[in-house]
Nucleic acid binder design. Structure first.
Ligand SMILES: [Mn+2]
Ligand SMILES: [Mn+2]
Ligand SMILES: [Zn+2]
Ligand SMILES: [Zn+2]
Lengths: 136, 136
DNA sequence: ATCTCACTTTAGAACCGTTCTAAACAGGCG
DNA sequence: CGCCTGTTTAGAACGGTTCTAAAGTGAGAT
């Protein structure tokens, strides 16, 4: 797992440093969509001397190198997403939490037939409330 | 048309003032998705003494009263959308321009069947380039 | 016509997330 | 060791937005 992280960095042309590994260890493994400030808080627990600037530098580098995405889903601060495969998003309006929705679980038709637009990428952004218990 | 604007404000419980009408005249009629700063620039052309704070106040009031939406589509600054009906969005990656895509022109299936999520609203966010001339 | 009072507008400060700056640091190599 | 390149750091700067506190406006009351 730690070797996986290291390999991911090297595969994407990122020189590994202690700080970058600490950031990667959290942000490449989480299923959250954390903000830079959340990454800073979490990483600082195991790496208390890391600076905020390094967290921002590292996250931006990871986006540039394709390890992370920064989908524009919220008004406020940027969120980072280690899931770089195509997928959709569900935003829980109660908690603000962002959940991944598998690409195959939603079907979108007629996009390629749209007049006037060459669509190269798309996603469905859903809002609502997370269901407490599944309706039988 | 000017009476339409006035009526829209009154219908949504907004006390009309000269400043609010000037903002409404532009932002409720445009097909753009302008930022607050763009609204400020445009309104100032016909109303040069309006203040930035009033533009922000007014836009936020209009969102609160349901005259505008503020969809989270871009990383940077908030954009305002006078189209309050359900619709999708296409973002031109060349220019950054945001275009409305009619609700009926895209079909989305299986949303209601999603496990774990009660979806109350959704939209498709597309990216690509605006087609220069329609392919025959 | 003047007074009153609630609402609106205003300039500028404050705020907050992010980027920039410039100096310190690290470490591989000659 | 000294050099060089890349990384980290604290804090300043920045840009968009909100807040503050004072001034303005205007519809009704007197
Ligand atoms: Mn990758
Ligand atoms: Mn309405
Ligand atoms: Zn995601
Ligand atoms: Zn729109």
């Amino acid at each position: 797992m730690n070797e996986d992280i290291l390999k991911a960095l090297l595969d994407h042309g990122v020189q590994p440093s202690a700080q970058r590994l600490a950031v990667a260890r959290y942000v490449l493994a989480t299923h959250d969509h954390p903000t830079a400030d959340r990454v800073f808080s979490v990483v600082r627990e195991s790496f208390p001397w890391i600076s905020r600037a390094t967290v921002y530098n590292t996250l931006n580098l990871f986006v540039e190198k394709g390890l992370l995405r920064a989908p524009a889903l919220t008004g406020g601060s940027v969120v980072f997403d280690p899931n770089t495969a195509r997928h959709h998003h569900f935003i829980d309006e109660k908690s603000g939490a962002i959940h991944d929705v598998p690409w195959e679980s939603v079907e979108v038709c007629n996009i390629e037939a749209l007049e006037g637009f060459d669509v190269t990428d798309f996603q469905v952004v859903m809002r609502g409330v997370k269901r407490r218990r599944r309706r039988t």
